[in-house]
Design a protein around this nucleic acid. Structure first.
Length: 284
DNA sequence: CGGGACGCCTGTGAGC
DNA sequence: TGCTCACAGGCGTCCC
């Protein structure tokens, strides 16, 4: 599921209810990708600060509350939703007697319960003393620029693509040039830009890389405005589905007619991931 | 260093 | 109905 728009939808829907909430109890279910890194109960008494996002990672800062013990840590939780994760928040007063199936982290606060549901358990919740400290720093180290980073210029983007011999789709997916586009949005952006996903990145002309950058930004923004994509699992923290899945023009549409030229959409495999594209509208 | 394959897990849908 | 198989939104790690 979660590509950048879904993570940002999660951040935006969670921030108003979580910021200022004080941790009362932490329940851990089955192990996720990595261990939390601190004893869960050591977070009790901490208060959530302003939520941030970097790429597809969420950052939930925690600071010791006014009456917290001297041992209370300063830092936060780095959260990744993996392939199938989503965060939910049940406000105080609503019945929440037991964890749902696949709800592997529950953080009880004075305002309600934050839960991470993740059937495949590729996701993670990791304690870190800060974004610039281990282990967060290491996990974020290789990330590319944010789509809205002013430093992500057409010139810089083109220069980065010039250094890559891989198919452009895989460069987008790798996330070390620009973060945020996963399999769905990479396919959609390449369709919008009229670029064959198999094209080697370094062969793209300057105007075409400019078009691609524009398409990546516009695709991610549009998805965010629609509340993300819900193929199966994804919900915002209040349980609302996204709407972008109805807007996909190539993703998941193998053999169906291209909405622009009616040519059947093709599916190929690149780096063990499905790629969908229109063989007529998208050129090498 | 770039590039590619693997594996982590569970659920679902198609085909037999 | 029940089984097996392919496939699924991500990404760190290991190998060349």
């Amino acid at each position: 599921m979660p590509e950048l728009p879904e993570v940002e939808v999660t951040r935006q829907s969670l921030a108003p209810v979580l910021q200022g909430a004080r941790v009362r109890r932490v329940e851990m279910g089955k192990p996720l990708r990595w261990p939390l890194g601190v004893p869960p109960q050591s977070l009790v008494g901490c208060v959530f600060g302003p939520l941030a996002r970097r790429g597809k990672y969420l950052w939930l800062p925690l600071h010791p509350g006014a009456d917290a013990p001297l041992t209370a840590p300063e830092g936060g939780l780095l959260v990744h939703l993996g392939m199938s994760g989503s965060l939910g928040f049940k406000p105080k007063g609503i019945a929440h007697p037991r964890a749902g199936l696949h709800e592997h982290v529950r953080i009880h606060t004075d305002r309600g319960v934050l839960g991470l549901t993740d059937p495949r358990r590729f996701g993670a919740v990791v304690w870190s003393a800060g974004l610039a400290q281990a282990p967060a720093a290491k996990l974020l180290a290789g990330l590319g620029r944010e789509p809205d980073d002013p430093a992500l210029t057409q010139a810089w983007f083109h220069e980065q693509l010039q250094r890559r011999r891989s198919p452009v789709k895989q460069v987008l997916l790798a996330g070390d040039v620009v973060v945020g586009a996963g399999n769905i949005y990479a396919c959609e952006a390449l369709f919008d830009a009229g670029i064959d996903p198999r094209t080697r990145a370094h062969r793209l002309s300057r105007p075409r890389t400019a078009r691609l950058l524009q398409a990546v930004r516009q695709t991610l923004l549009r998805a965010l405005a629609l509340g993300g994509t819900t193929l199966r699992d994804f919900r915002d923290v209040h349980g609302m589905s996204g709407g972008f899945q109805n807007q996909a023009r190539v993703y998941g549409r193998e053999a169906q007619a291209c909405l622009r030229c009616a040519t059947p959409i093709r599916r190929v495999v690149q780096g063990q991931r499905s790629t969908f594209f229109c063989p007529k509208c998208q050129k090498r």
